[in-house]
Write a protein that binds this DNA or RNA. Structure first.
Lengths: 117, 117
DNA sequence: CAACCATATTCCGATATGGTAATATGACGA
DNA sequence: TCGTCATATTACCATATCGGAATATGGTTG
């Protein structure tokens, strides 16, 4: 498996493409990203996430449901409430890659308007 | 910039979350992932992508438009046709992360049904 | 068991998105 | 300039998804 900068391609079947797309879809809502971000510093209950993310209870619950379906978060009853926590830190790696790209793009766009071309 | 395994959190503003979500949304369609995958081996024109991905011309064009908006692909006129090519290989890193996660999840799910618990 | 708290689910209206067919744009050669 | 090929855009329908309000579930405590 000598993959130093793997240029070899792992072709995905339509079925797999659908699954991958589904995971990206789960991450394609600002509210859900905000929830994940809030959970980054530790487990939180629904009512805490409501305040932190300024979302209604029903929406928090629904969004967490989506994230849970994709195994991005896990839940665990903790006394009277239910604490949610990050199930796969991979999401932060994903976000970091995306942010990096956007920074590069922004810098590139800014260069177009720079004093010296 | 000494980030070797940055565990420090880069909090994103609502505006930034929206932008990141937008990029994930661009990747949340199987057809678009198929297009990116097709382009992985080199630049292709629209009509070539139509065959490869089994999509109608209008859809290829629209999907490429979305990918182009997010600077995931670039275009370049090549004689009578227009060749599209990957603008940012980062997308493949993203896909690889997601695929890795799904393999882990699948293995985990499979374990639940394994003969020995 | 009853009441209460936390969370999940359902119903609804508004908006967004994908696929298709038809049409428009735009470059190039005769 | 006209026609043609390649691509982009538009209009339209069907479907999906979000947010909000109301309601249901489920665990805990008296």
């Amino acid at each position: 498996m000598g993959n130093t900068k793997t240029r070899t391609i792992k072709r995905l079947s339509p079925r797999q493409l659908e699954a991958v797309a589904g995971l990206f879809a789960a991450l394609s809502e600002p509210s859900r990203l905000a929830l994940l971000q809030a959970l980054q510093s530790g487990p939180l209950a629904v009512h805490q996430l409501m305040e932190t993310c300024r979302l209604k209870q029903a929406n928090v619950s629904k969004h967490l449901g989506v994230l849970h379906q994709h195994r991005l978060v896990e839940r665990k009853r903790k006394g009277p409430s239910i604490k949610y926590h990050i199930a796969d830190p991979m999401v932060f790696a994903l976000c970091e890659l995306v942010c990096g790209k956007m920074e590069r793009d922004a810098k590139c766009a800014a260069a177009l308007f720079a004093p010296e071309i």
